[in-house]
Amino acid sequence: MNVLCIDTSNQPMSIAVYKENELAGEITINIKRNHSIQLMPNIEHLMQQANLKPKDLDQMVVADGPGSFTGIRIGMTTAKTMAWTLNIPIKTVSSLKLIGASLLYQNGLVCPFFDARRGNVYTGLYRVLEGEINTIEDDCNIDMASWLTQVKDIDEKIFFISPNGENFKELIEQELGEKAVYVEQPFQLPRASLLWKMSQSNEESPIHLVKPNYHRKTEAENNWLKQNGEGSHDERG
């Protein structure tokens, strides 16, 4: 199998190529740059390094969110369009699970999170055991203070891991004390190469229907719901 993996759901951009089931290469860039400019030239470069043509690809894997709305869409549009036009399957993996997978051989609880501004985070809770990572609490959009209150009573060490979580480091240590382990660089960056393994237990996504998992409605929809009552017909789910 030749597989192209993409994650652009936050500031870091990570792409990986598998050639005949072996990891041929991976590029991870953690610099504030425009994914729309960077992604495709880097894919081309990595594919050239692996001596692969687009038509040699057998599968696409993409991180489908949560994260920056625009960022997720750039990776997803690229993966989706390539999967469609090359007529190959596409699979998706949570961007949070991908970050959590950085600790795949460190047994225990992992809490990956992304700063969603104004005290909010996208987060979830995962358990890592012998190279497997499983969901304990589903990905969600929540204010960090409430989330920490929720996980505080778990009587176990939790690894907090985030590519942009510096603002919450103090709060986490203050709330959870010794139980919290704040994962430092470079382990907090996404590695697209992990996407393929993460995706293996997932179903293939129907190409036309695959879309980002934003975990958050738009401002306009929230305001509309406020004015028209929460019970109103929900546009997009």
């Binding site: 992604l39 495709m40 894919i43 625009t70 549009t77 690229t78 369009t81 390539m82 036009t85 090359l86």
Partner: peptide, 19 residues
């Protein structure tokens, strides 16, 4: 900008995939 980005990235994917 967000709307343009979908078309631009889809077009780039097609151009790259088919050279």
């Amino acid at each position: 900008v967000g709307a343009l980005l979908i078309g631009v990235n889809a077009a780039k994917s097609l151009a790259y995939a088919h050279d």
